[in-house]
């Protein structure tokens, strides 16, 4: 079991209020991602749940039990750190076994669990090595192994992939998602990378300046952002945000159009513009356009649309897919 409830949780460091007040419900078995720009309080929030920081106010409940004043180890959670935080003087085997040893599990059971975890994570051949002899991805797996063996009620991940290169990050993303399907344990995952959030999460929590901007499934956030911040943060390439006359004609302060919601044409359309840069990805082409009277626009078209630098292009926004925002930046 691993449901986590945050009730008016707040945190200040001296004068600085990092988290004003947050309410959040995490259901057992969910994969929840905290995402937001750096300094938004996402890591602090995770560390509050872990018990590595003390809350300034509010309550944290795990499985309905108030754990606000419990030490980290008593909360039944496991954490994977950004730097992996492996014990450099212990072998991989001892690293993974450490939490079990602390829990005074008997020797045979420890061996069994370590062997099982190593098999799941493809670490069997490396059990006697030191962390310094492993690659980044292997260290990451050891850190996960150390978390798994405790059979925690929830896993906490603090930007676990940010020290890996792009290719490995993709692989590990997949492995962690598979692990979640296999274990069906609650996972709380912190990242600043919206791609990781979109691809892994059951539920995304978008944070900004210590406040929750929106909570929802990836597609929810993508198609129904509650405000301009979420609209701009989720999705790549970014949503186009247009003010001025066009927005007013739609009865809004700002209008947002996703890059794929344009109809492009060589000869006619609502707007016209010049191609500044065309990025051909094969399946898709990203166009960076300078649109007359509007300014910079990102558009996405299929790979066969052979636009080049300097071409004149016509484009028409798909009016049914517009996002409209009012003066306060909230979706209308």
């Amino acid at each position: 079991m691993g449901s986590i409830t945050l009730n008016k949780v707040s945190k200040s460091f001296g004068e600085a209020k990092v988290i004003p007040s947050i309410d959040l419900e995490i259901v057992d078995g969910e994969f929840v991602v905290f995402v937001g720009p750096s300094g938004c309080g996402k890591s602090t929030l995770l560390r509050l749940i872990a018990g590595l920081e003390d809350v300034s106010g509010g309550k944290i409940m795990i499985d309905g039990k108030d754990v606000t004043d419990n030490a980290p180890a008593q909360r039944g959670l496991a954490m994977v750190f950004q730097s992996y935080a492996l014990y450099p003087h212990m072998s991989v085997r001892n690293n993974i076994a450490f939490p079990l040893k602390m829990a005074k599990v008997d020797k045979a059971a420890i061996d069994q669990k370590v062997t099982d975890a190593a098999r799941v994570l493809n670490l069997t051949d490396y059990l006697e090595r030191r962390p310094s002899q492993l690659s980044g991805g292997q260290r990451q797996r050891v850190a996960i192994g150390r978390a798994i063996v405790r059979e925690p009620s929830a896993f906490l991940f603090d930007e676990p992939l940010s020290n890996l290169d792009a290719a490995l990050r993709g692989t590990m993303r997949l492995e962690i998602t598979q692990l979640h399907h296999q274990l069906k344990t609650t996972m709380v995952y912190v990242t600043h990378d919206q791609v990781e959030a979109m691809t892994m999460a059951d539920k995304i929590v978008v944070l900004n300046r210590g406040n929750i901007e929106q909570v929802g499934s990836p597609l929810d956030l993508y198609s129904r952002p509650r405000n301009i911040f979420v609209a701009g943060f989720i999705g790549s390439p970014k949503m186009n945000l247009i003010e001025d006359d066009y927005a007013r004609s739609k009865g809004a302060k700002t209008v947002g159009i996703r890059p794929e919601h344009f109809t492009l044409s060589r000869d006619s359309g609502l707007w016209s513009g010049t191609v500044k840069v065309a990025e051909h990805l094969g399946s898709d082409t990203f166009l960076h356009l300078d649109v007359d009277g509007i300014g910079h626009i990102n558009a996405r078209c299929d790979g066969e649309f052979g636009a080049r630098h300097g071409d004149r292009i016509f484009l028409t926004p798909n009016e049914t897919k517009l996002h409209r925002f009012n003066e306060q930046g909230l979706a209308i």
Binding site: L52, P72, M79, F81, S83, A85, F98
Partner: peptide, 18 residues
């Protein structure tokens, strides 16, 4: 000595003495 390692030990259930 990185602080995260000490935190990891605390998460892993090590008491001050351990």
């Amino acid at each position: 000595i990185p602080g995260e390692i000490l935190e990891a030990a605390r998460m892993d259930g090590a008491g001050l003495w351990q």
